[in-house]
Design a protein around this nucleic acid. Structure first.
Lengths: 338, 338
DNA sequence: GTGAAAGCGCTAACAA
DNA sequence: TTGTTAGCGCTTTCAC
């Protein structure tokens, strides 16, 4: 395996010149630049990242910690994050915590050992264990929906409000008044925010909020079915359900189908996220889209500026990602009571 | 940020002793061992992986390259791979190629730069560009369904045959004779193997193989719909469809629903993979399960033995992962023709 | 513009 | 059992 010395020898220059060349320093003359690149090609030389990191202190490694890689929302997020990171010369380290704080802490530790230049914490809750470790060591981090008073921390605010208002208005326009909300686990910031936005939207639309129709689920397929079951056992039932995420909605769709309820004739269902499966549910799911691409870009941008331009006082520390309703076929006017 | 010297100073030992301690060398006395660990705790010391890698030549980094992270099969595979790797002290680098050979080559290059100890190539086709680079540099690799005559390369053979035979027998037992197969893209080894196994199973079951009912799709949601469409336009139609993967089957389910065909009364559908969504389709999907856990474990084991015990002549170089049918509700006896 | 040399934090060979 | 020391491959002053 050729090293920088081999290249220098072949190109008949010093290793410093080779180093400058591969780092595209402007100080290298056209002549040597050409010679060095030729030697690099010829030897099939690849710089050793570990050596570079060791001396420069920068690893060009970015961590991304997600809540649950099994929820299609996250692979799509990771894919976007990787794309933009790789395009800018960064590599990514992925970890999934399954909402377990202990796992999160272990991830953070491993990322610290690998000397990541920044970490995107996309767990939407339970961030405390990482914050301590990462912030304390001066690693730039970006959080979703969680502000931290530290110069190295940035926040991505998710404006669920817009999409949720649209959803409620859409249902109200269809004639629904009895709307339930299957919330996410309350340990997630995102779940709390979404639920609060739902309440606000209902209030604004002049619709009654039924406490028993707001049920905490787990953001997973099975949880949607469980939530539906709870709703089913109640004396009065809603004509529409808004779910805190698409996984829950898909679970509801299945439970309703099993019970013989037709969607959307007997029941309207709305999800949130717009994962790629949402277009392929039966019926195709009306949902509130949260762009993974936007989120990934914002996260990367936050980390990159922190890493490459630390201490810049007028650096953007807050980012906003919006949501909007995508109407498909799981919503319709409620059946008229006989 | 404390380094090994700081720990040595605090514990009043040499840096060699600290190094031995953190590498759990048996040569350190109980007394010093304790003192060193205490200093480590006190300083909150984390060893620098890059320095370790630089001198030891081993990064404890494993790459995993998947075909398409957006297909839920792969996140589940990655999750299992990460679990077992982290448990054994390895970190993983994930990349998704979207079946693009150029992307694959770029991934391989980046992994080479990061000095991975091994790469699991789970792309099921188009591996050639990586092979050249990786094998040539002596990096252990493990491939799915692709044997390579190199001492550093291992192979995981996937026995689709068992599951596919079960599927065909299941349908035949139900009374189906007209069975279609929506294949994956022919550039994937897995797609070819699955299709061949389907033909063999049909033959063995004494069922007619209709060329026009074997259609190449793309293993994606949309592709399933397209395949269904092609089937629909034919004068005679099958009573059952076996799909090369679950994504295709989900696409078929949706297309059938759109056309007003009832599954399983009018049409039986079988998938392959058993992704977690398969249990939540409408109706729940009968499918051929391919265990991500088994696959991930085999891949890790192959790489670890290669990395930690190179040159062992009696090392296992081939692994087998099996499949089996999981019957749910998307299959039933065909409607009797009036 | 280019090169010589110091040293990033650690492991491993050798000495004691 | 413990310590001393020579690099691992590279970036980065500092001279020239």
């Amino acid at each position: 395996m050729p090293d920088i010395r081999a290249v220098a020898a072949l190109a008949k220059v010093s290793i410093a010149t080779v180093s400058r060349t591969i780092n595209s320093s402007p100080l290298v003359s056209e002549r040597l630049n050409k010679r060095v690149w030729q030697a690099i090609k010829q030897l099939n030389y690849l710089p050793n990242t570990h050596a570079r990191t060791l001396v420069s202190g920068r690893s060009r490694l970015l961590g991304i910690i997600v809540e649950n890689i099994t929820n299609p929302f996250f692979p799509e997020l990771i894919q976007s994050f990787e794309e933009v990171a790789v395009a800018r010369g960064y590599e990514i380290l992925v970890s999934s915590t399954n909402s377990d704080p202990a796992v999160l802490a272990a991830c953070a530790r491993r990322m610290l050992e690998r000397k990541v230049d920044g970490v995107a914490v996309m767990t939407f809750g339970e961030e405390e264990p990482v914050l301590d470790q990462l912030v304390h060591r001066g690693v730039p981090i970006v959080l979703a929906e969680f502000k931290l008073d530290d110069p190295k921390a940035s926040t991505i605010l998710l404006d669920y409000s817009t999409g949720i208002h649209e959803a409620v208005r859409h249902l109200a326009g269809l004639g629904h008044r009895a709307i339930a909300f299957l919330a996410g686990p309350h340990k997630l910031h995102s779940a709390i925010t979404r639920e609060n936005d739902f309440r606000a939207a209902m209030q604004l639309a002049g619709l009654p909020i039924q406490k028993k129709w707001i049920i905490e689920c787990d953001h997973m397929l099975k949880g949607g079915g469980d939530g539906y079951e709870q709703l089913r056992r109640q004396p009065t039932r809603p004509t529409a359900i808004i779910c805190s995420n698409d996984m829950t909605a898909i679970g509801v769709l299945r439970a309703a189908y099993m019970e013989g309820m037709r969607v959307p004739q007997d029941l309207s269902v709305i999800g949130l996220d717009d994962i790629s499966f949402a277009e392929y549910t039966l019926p195709p799911l009306t949902t509130i889209r949260l762009s993974r691409t936007d989120l990934a870009r914002a996260a990367f941008e936050a980390l990159r500026t922190q890493a490459e331009d630390p201490g810049n006082p007028k650096m953007q520390r807050e980012f906003l990602v919006s949501t909007r309703l995508v109407v498909r076929s799981s919503t319709a006017a409620p059946a008229v009571k006989p």
